[in-house]
Design a protein around this nucleic acid. Structure first.
Lengths: 203, 203
DNA sequence: GTCTATACCCTGATAGAC
DNA sequence: GTCTATCAGGGTATAGAC
């Protein structure tokens, strides 16, 4: 059989192409949004033609979903690593996350821009983001409940409400920070807010 | 002179057309975003051809700016009316604003979608939103300082930081609310947050 | 797996008549 | 002030060769 020595190499090359495309697509979606990004932009960046690119992803919509899922996967992985390494409480974990986010404005931009785009009708990312918030709130909920039991977080506000507020504050700060990075200091301000989550008279 | 009896009528008609176009454009920009809206959508809605529409606005970009300025103007006017009628303090004013916003999801969507789009490179609305936040923070700042002097708002956090947090919380809640209107109760949650702004031990 | 060529639609904008 | 006609350009996606 003629191709047996190269078979695995080709599969690996294909995987590498996919990863490269996702990497470059991530940059463009972050910078220009989904609708603002042309397939030709990405194709150029990966040094490939448009049909070559579409061989790996059936359509631009599919590519978007792949980008989102890959980022989400990476973020969750990072969360697991941080958690296991340090055994942080929820508040410390959020503090750490926001501080980290300040070092990756491109990725923050990706989610801020795409979540807003996904609010509009017929956006391919809509389902993804609805489910993402549901999932994040669920995880956050459990963590907060545990922290409340341990007395690390105030329990005069329900965990359900607290987690909504936390994500709201994070998202809102990101908007102002992305518009004026020098002026709005995300991590400093989230810290002020996080103090609010400690039990009253516990500072 | 041949047209003297109709001169004013035509000017009025032109103004009415402009207003109608802005009204319909507002709906589409809110529903589908700027890039997701076609001039032909708006033209159809105002029962006019595309060139007819472009007679009133030199380009789609100009139309966007007009829409944003008009909404901003209307919002500020509303603020003045509410303020003069009731002499609310800042916290009560925000409470009132968020409650009102819950009744106009389309307009909330307009600003949430467009501000995020404006973060991307080369968006015609970018300058507008940067200046808008600057202006809103400035106004909010002064009001908060006055309230702090009167003891209505905690003064262990600077007015500058408080106003950033307030807008962040409002913007962030809007995102989750727009994605799942039934699940996230904006006004109820903002009230919890607003309690935080009262001086410690003053509830 | 990647290319060239191309089909085909959409979209913003202009020219020029009325 | 509004129309018809039309253009130029951009954009996704497919066909088919290598």
């Amino acid at each position: 059989m003629t191709q047996s020595p190269t078979r695995r190499t080709q599969a690996e090359r294909s995987k590498a192409s996919r990863e490269k495309i996702i990497r470059e697509a991530t940059k463009f979606f972050a910078q220009n949004g989904f609708r603002g990004t042309k397939l030709s932009d990405i194709a150029k960046a990966v040094d490939m033609s448009e049909p070559g690119l579409l061989h790996h992803f059936p359509s631009k919509d599919h590519l978007l979903i792949s980008v989102l899922e890959e980022r989400d996967r990476a973020d969750r992985q990072r969360y697991v690593n941080v958690k296991e390494g340090n055994d942080l409480d929820v508040i410390a974990a959020i503090r750490e996350l926001v501080t980290h986010n300040e070092t990756v404005p491109g990725l923050v931009k990706l989610f801020t821009v795409l979540v807003a785009e996904s609010i509009t009708a017929d956006n391919p990312g809509h389902e993804f983001f609805v489910k993402r918030y549901q999932g994040l709130r669920e995880i956050g909920n459990e963590l907060i409940k545990k922290s409340q039991e341990k007395g690390e977080i105030r329990d005069d506000i329900s965990a359900e409400d607290l987690i909504v507020m936390i994500f709201a504050m994070m998202d809102g700060l990101q908007i102002q920070w992305l518009l004026e990075p020098e002026l709005v200091q995300m991590s400093r301000i989230i810290n002020i807010f996080l103090d609010y989550l400690r039990p009253a008279g516990d500072k």
